[in-house]
Design a protein around this nucleic acid. Sequence first.
DNA 1: TTGAAAGCGCTACCAC
DNA 2: GTGGTAGCGCTTTCAA
Lengths: 338, 338
Amino acid sequence: MAGIDEVARAAGVSISTVSYALSGKRPVSAETRRRIQAAVHELGYSPNAGARMLAGSQTHIFALSEPLRADSHAPSHMAFMHAMTVAARRKEYDMLLLTDEDASAGMKRVAASGLVDAILVLDVAPDDPRVAIARASATPTLFVGIPNDHDDLVCVDLDFERAAVEAVDRLADAGHREIGLIGGSRRAYEKSNFPPRVRAAVVARAAERGGHARAVASGEVVTDRAHVRESVREFIAAGVTGIVLHAPEEVLQVVLVELAALGKSMPGDVSIVSVGSSFDTDTQPTPVDSIPLVPQSSCELAVDLAIELIAGRPVASGLHLIPPTYLERGSVAAAPSA
Amino acid sequence: MAGIDEVARAAGVSISTVSYALSGKRPVSAETRRRIQAAVHELGYSPNAGARMLAGSQTHIFALSEPLRADSHAPSHMAFMHAMTVAARRKEYDMLLLTDEDASAGMKRVAASGLVDAILVLDVAPDDPRVAIARASATPTLFVGIPNDHDDLVCVDLDFERAAVEAVDRLADAGHREIGLIGGSRRAYEKSNFPPRVRAAVVARAAERGGHARAVASGEVVTDRAHVRESVREFIAAGVTGIVLHAPEEVLQVVLVELAALGKSMPGDVSIVSVGSSFDTDTQPTPVDSIPLVPQSSCELAVDLAIELIAGRPVASGLHLIPPTYLERGSVAAAPSA
DNA sequence: TTGAAAGCGCTACCAC
DNA sequence: GTGGTAGCGCTTTCAA
């Protein structure tokens, strides 16, 4: 709890020199800096957060808005929160958690009190009420996910449409013509903008590649196993040989089990590609080709953009899409010549 | 971004009166308070966080230390983080997330910079390194969970031993003599102090009640289904009619499935009580009697104690155990007369 | 390359 | 019941 004045005295310099030596905002002679750093270390000095905020008008804190819905997928959320917090710490930022039932109230509060330098918004819905708050607020706000009306917002996300195209292309390249898409729960289709876009992209690309795609959601809830199993049976009956999966890990397991039950091998009879999976398709019991949704990528980009905004540097508003990466895991093979 | 001076001017009073009206630390006439509140509302005033910290030496921020281990149970963690953040907000506190790889570094940092008023420690291990930091720090620190050496710390947790005794008593009261305990993963037994204590309590109480208990962990990992199923078969073979479960939801499902596979009904043939479950045993497909671990209870108590410590009021160090609550759901019946 | 000093926007003491 | 004002510990001009 030593103050900057004590450091200055110990180093035999003025307070301002200590401040500049630490912030690097003014050149300081090597010798002076050395003495100051020694004093800082000696006294265990750490600048007072409140004073820094007040004088510098920078808090070095981000707010993380994460409205925990009941039907949220906890592991994915944890992964994003963690990745975001780690990305922030790398840039010397701390993370304040905003989980108000009313997320908007929290955002207003931290913005109005100058508690945070920027707000990072996770789990964005198409008609997210936080969009309005962001527009009305002077505090830089960054969306990880894409609301419907986003032209003047800064949004980060995986380029799901390119990912969908890439997935279809891989299957088509291997000779698959009849393609099936298993999406997330029906609620996921309402909660986010991307499931419908992935579906549209898969269908369109399959047609472009001279094939045909049929798409289904994975049921009312993520764990609607019966619905998933039925979809798989219908796919097989219809001659589908390539499956694109855009759903959580649990659904993949059900698909694999049902294929096995039908006596179908992977990738001998059926090829599978997982798109936008936030789980590790590598450590799965059965590895599957995937175009993963990597929390670190989105979060690091979001943090970088937030820092640009805070510094007053120009940032293009609109979508900042992360190019998909295809991971081969051996679940795609040539279509059976049937 | 209006300041306190603008509020004072708008209300026609001095800034000190505004400050006192808002903090309540000095009586203010009803009429004056009314005018001030109107002005606050009008201007959308929210006191500047940095200024408040600096002048008042209270930050109104808690730190939440949550080292996300790879094997952590995401839903439970989310539940605790959420409950803690909600409990804090109820007391006008914000929550800062500490997820540094080195948890101790984060705690030191926020304590040294005066960023937070108190630190709340979750997911406490028996030999938790954060204990040493807490001892060396002047910042009030509260543990949710019990480290080995805790005499001079303030710790909050469910009274697992009483819960274990209560569970056995319920089974014994219903005539069950042979009792089986299915614990969490083997790692859980190393990571926390309570699994072994629950085990000891169950075994001891079963003996006191003239019965006998056998205990097993649920395998290397939480999802070791094969191990759980085998344990259930062994229990049945050994004449167990009452099962105490101290494990996550997934394990309960496996137990129920295996009992059904063995042709055993619940509660006709086998009675079950879940202890320390953080999931909702009520909305399960099959409801089960339980003595739940309610995150809200622990978190609200932790926040209340933290506020006492911040205010400089005396708080007993050592354990603050939450009395268990038994929820009847019809999974316990009279032991078969066999 | 360095120092002196003016605030940042509050809280809380002292006075009335 | 209310007002004036001295700091809180920094950052950042302005001067040297």
